[in-house]
């Protein structure tokens, strides 16, 4: 050290000082970046929690209008939208995104609607949302089922027609599904009032649908969709068994249900 000329020693000290200074700048930058990465989500979370505050104001009104007609179709204890009061009990478990459900409905939807109106069957529709993952983040299953349940609550006589429109325009898996505007348009086509359509965006029935999905798997004994029960017997919906009735051939299910009705 002593042999170093002073200027060289000075240079070394300067280099060390520069390194320490840079080190400090880098550290503060790191702390700032970490703070941003932590604070932004927190602020966002708080803002998101504050923003929906107006929603609860409108949700009770939506629920109260729904509750007035709720006896019409939606039963919490049955986890179903119930149509008709015929002798034969038919439970359908479905997801609006499920292609098999689309096939089932395009074969049987009109027949089931007819049997309901004739008073031959009690049709319990159990909308599920487990295929939300197949609509690229738009949660089509929940959006469609929510609209269906909202209609079943408020204007039950329009619900099956609405569902029929959705089935005939079923989007493919792994697409974004029908848009909110398209769902609203089909509801309008089915004669649903604008006041009910306006409640769709609140997704007020989302939790109900999730609970129905859990009920289908855990309590109703379903393993896949479309699921079908007739008078409590599983006709379709088990993984290792094909349908006990050929429900994919037009007229077969209808004939079977008419036979049971006697």
């Amino acid at each position: 050290m002593a042999t170093n000329p002073p200027s060289e020693r000075r240079k070394k000290i300067e280099a060390i000082e520069r390194e320490q200074k840079t080190r400090r700048v880098v550290m503060y930058t790191i702390i700032a970046v970490v703070a941003v990465a932590v604070l932004v989500p927190i602020v966002w979370l708080i803002a998101a929690n504050l923003a929906p505050a107006p929603e609860p104001v409108s949700t009770p009104t939506a629920e109260s209008t729904g509750a007035a007609a709720a006896s019409g179709a939606v039963s919490d204890s049955l986890h179903a939208a119930v149509f008709g009061d015929g002798k034969v009990e038919v439970d359908v478990f479905f997801d609006f995104m499920c292609p098999g459900c689309g096939s089932f409905e395009s074969v049987n939807s009109a027949d089931l609607m007819q049997l309901v109106s004739e008073g031959a069957i009690t049709l319990r529709m159990h909308p599920m949302n487990f295929l939300d993952r197949l609509s690229q983040g738009t949660n089509y299953s929940t959006r469609a089922a929510n609209a269906f349940v909202a209609i079943a609550r408020a204007e039950p006589d329009k619900a099956l027609q609405f569902a029929d429109y959705l089935w005939h325009n079923q989007p493919g898996e792994n697409t974004e599904g029908l848009s909110d505007a398209e769902i609203a348009a089909y509801a309008q086509q089915a004669g649903v009032s604008q006041a009910v359509i306006d409640t769709f965006s609140e997704l007020a029935n989302a939790d109900w649908i999730t609970a129905t999905t859990a009920y289908a798997w855990d309590e109703a004994g379903m393993e896949s969709t479309p699921g079908l029960k007739v008078n409590g017997e599983i006709v379709a919906g088990l993984l290792d068994k094909p349908y006990t009735i050929d429900i994919m051939t037009p007229g077969v299910l209808k004939a079977e249900l008419e036979k049971l009705n006697g």
Binding site: E19, R23, V26, M27, V34, V36, A37
Partner: peptide
């Protein structure tokens, strides 16, 4: 030594989080 590698990693992870 001055921690630029750490800074790069933190920026990368913060980007992912955001």
């Amino acid at each position: 030594r001055v921690g630029i590698d750490l800074l790069i990693v933190i920026v990368l992870l913060a980007t992912v989080v955001l």
